[in-house]
Amino acid sequence: MGRDGSLGAFEELVLLAVLRGRGKAYGMTVRREIVERSGRSVSIGAVYATLERLEKKGLVDSSLVEGNDARRGRARRYFRVLPAGVDALERTRAGRAGLWEGVDLDAAAAHAEEAG
């Protein structure tokens, strides 16, 4: 999170993935959501590091639930986005929207081509 409270690009992805999980998000679903929706290749370690950071910042919280067979009984840690997290996403989107305003990509591409 930057000084202004906006999110890093990967933090944003993780937070969005948690949000999409509707209270049923945990490490694996977050990783899969990012891989499937953004096409990015992501390691589970990176997801965990980011979730931990987000939790420390108070943007998400988590609870432990007992695991099933496929996990050999290992617990699941479900994540939930806190109001502060929603705010952070909102700020990030607003900040970005400000920058996007007035940008015409087609024109920019044509311009770049001419210059090149």
Binding site: M28, I44, R74, A75, R77
Partner: peptide, 14 residues
């Protein structure tokens, strides 16, 4: 982590 990390990767594997 209480084993959640290993569990997550196992579950996705399976």
């Amino acid at each position: 982590d209480c084993g959640t990390l290993v569990g997550d990767l196992d579950e996705e594997y399976v």
